[in-house]
Design a protein around this nucleic acid. Structure first.
Lengths: 223, 223
DNA sequence: TTGTAGCCGAAACCAAGGTATGACCCTCCC
DNA sequence: GGGAGGGTCATACCTTGGTTTCGGCTACAA
């Protein structure tokens, strides 16, 4: 199961899932490390948030186990920091002396779980399974979207404008009138758009536009 | 502000927002009732979950304030019950003696907030504002979807099948080959579909199909 | 200066979409 | 039996969509 072989879900991530643990308590780090390894999960431990930040994230589905009470920064603040830095790794909190407001704040901010020490191994493993799975689907969606954005980036401003109007449902002649060009020109732009976006049909292009949030006003013009 | 006049957001709900309070403590009911009325919110209080269930929900954006410790059923179980009964009213929990696992369970199940008694009035009001707004947008989406489903329900099985294939991007002739009829027949079905669904263009229909989850396999055929 | 990219467009042509009109068949139900 | 609804199809006609070929224009960088 720990094979490098393709699992049933192995699309975006080139590597096996990995669990990151940040805790200043060495014995806890060891315990968690052993726990995860015992079920075949890769693990990487850190004694501080700063240490974790310096390591670069691998191209794999992952999650982060965080003690609420960390040296220097609190786990909650660190969670906020990561969000601001656009790092969306799922977080599982652990705490020895947590309170309800902390819990609410963490969960509102998207934490997967919030475990009180001592916790049962199985609870932690369940949380990690959920977190890894959540990260996997998030990464898959992000991959699709970034590919789409890359294709969209190759469009000229005019082409983006035409794409917005066409996917909104306007006919070529209406698009032509809207932007003040001949219908034949719209047809040509349209052909370029289909090729560049690798859309196999108009419905296909419409769905891409949906994902990209392309609509009236998001075209290439700044009128 | 409490006017019946159209607020900036007044699409689906015919009535003003309303707050439901379920608590077995009469003094708490009164206090909350006064608090919400003081800011111009409609309120309805109940002494038990059962009482709340018997009253029918109005056609308005609303939320539910629930004490975790209720007579007979726990607030958490009641939350689960509502979810199972497909009642998706946003819930704000209150507790005097809550613990972290309770909080986590409630938040995982979608609670808006989890307040510990005693709480500051402003915290409760903030939570309610969030909850009402969340319910408003949920209701708006539900309204759009139910209208769409109503239109989709008027389609014949054959028309649904054609709709699925057309919105998937197949050309009329391909659809015809797929279902084994002449191309002209597909065109006729297509015309009926556009009329019945009130779609102004193919992209329009594609977006409807997206919302409806109409795709290959969800057509009218059971092959 | 010589590309190169973006933008525009005419002419010609062919494929696909869309809408009648009229017709045939079947099934269900009053 | 007869009507209604659903499904099928032909013929005819018109509108859109889409491509190719050819040409012209501007702005900008090598």
């Amino acid at each position: 199961m720990i094979e490098r072989a393709a699992s049933p879900h192995a699309p975006a991530s080139a590597e096996e899932p990995i669990v990151f643990v940040v805790d200043d308590d060495a014995s806890m780090r060891d315990a968690l490390s052993n726990l995860f390894r015992s079920v075949g999960l890769r693990v990487k431990v850190f004694a501080s948030a700063h240490e974790f930040l310096r390591s670069k994230l691998p191209d794999a589905s992952s999650c982060l186990i965080l003690d609420i009470r960390l040296p220097r920064v609190s786990g909650l603040d660190f969670q906020a920091e990561l969000a601001k830095a656009d790092v969306h790794i799922p977080i599982i909190f652990m705490t020895g002396h947590g309170d309800i407001p902390m819990t609410v704040r963490a969960m509102k901010a998207g934490a997967v779980d919030f475990l009180t020490k001592p916790f049962r191994d199985q609870d932690m493993l369940d949380a990690v399974t959920t977190a890894i799975e959540r990260d996997r689907s998030r990464r898959d969606e992000a991959k699709v979207l970034s590919d789409l954005r890359a294709a969209f980036a190759t469009l000229t401003p005019r082409e983006r404008e035409v794409m917005a109007l066409v996917t909104a449902g306007l006919m070529n002649k209406q698009v032509a009138a809207e932007i003040g060009v001949a219908e034949i020109t719209v047809k040509i732009h349209r052909g370029h758009i289909m090729r560049k976006m690798a859309a196999k049909s108009l419905p296909d292009l419409v769905r891409m536009a949906q994902l990209l949030g392309v609509g009236p006003g998001s075209g290439g013009a700044q009128t």
